[in-house]
Amino acid sequence: MPKVAILIYSVDDTIAKLAENEKRGIEIAGGEAEIFQVPDVSYRNENGGEEDRSKLGKTNADFAYKILTRETLVEHDYYLFGIPARFGNFPADWKTFWDSNTGGLWAKGSLHGKIAGLFVSGAISGKGDTEMCIMNAMSTLVHHGIIYVPLGYKNAYKELTNTDDVNGSCAWGAGCVSGVDGGRSPSVSELKVHQLQGKAFYDRIKDL
């Protein structure tokens, strides 16, 4: 049975909630998944000082998930990445993890041929920020030779085309509109799309 590693970075509960629903979708399809959290990094603010992490959101200590390591990537063949969009790209913690831990894996081709999907959260309604985040993340996947599986429309057409409800999902991957302050909780519709993505992703890989 393929085991999916759901790899996330969450500064509040949003991405974690989305990840739990992706996991639930995989389980509905008869699969197994485990959630891993990207390591925290320390920031330097614009004045050169250290940021107070308590003001930036939750840290690894606030979640029960295991910490993502390079070994996690090697040991699993299937990934779902949960990324909070930051100016249409990875947040610093995500980028730092890839830059600091995967150069050797890239040189050896250790991740080549592994399979991944992506889900995201963004501050505002509209697909630009979240779609761009997934597109930018594609560069990392391509350089490692990781095969990308999009959400598409087949399995979530009703939710993706419904104009009566805010839904941060798109054909590139499931998503969520979290609000400028991160205070908006994922809607029932958004959580459903994440379950649908988890199920569709597992259905795609289970016979490989």
Rank of each mutant, 00 (worst) to 15 (best):
V180R: 14
G48I: 13
G128D: 13
K199F: 00
N45L: 13
A61Y: 05
A29N: 10
N89A: 15
A174G: 15
A123E: 13
A137H: 00
L118M: 14
G117Q: 03
L80D: 00
G104V: 09
D207H: 14
K127I: 12
G49H: 12
L80T: 09
I147F: 05
V149H: 07
D12R: 14
G168V: 03
V149G: 00
W106M: 05
L141I: 06
A16W: 00
I8M: 06
V41S: 08
G168T: 04
I67Y: 02
V188R: 08
S125T: 11
E190N: 09
P91L: 09
G128M: 13
Y157N: 11
S10Y: 02
T72C: 03
V11F: 13
F36K: 07
F87I: 10
K154S: 14
T163Y: 10
E159Y: 07
I8C: 03
A123W: 08
G122D: 01
D99N: 14
V149E: 06
S10C: 05
A116P: 02
S187M: 08
C170Q: 14
A174V: 07
K192N: 15
E159C: 08
G49K: 14
P91V: 10
R44N: 11
R24G: 00
I6T: 06
G30L: 12
S187Y: 07
A33T: 03
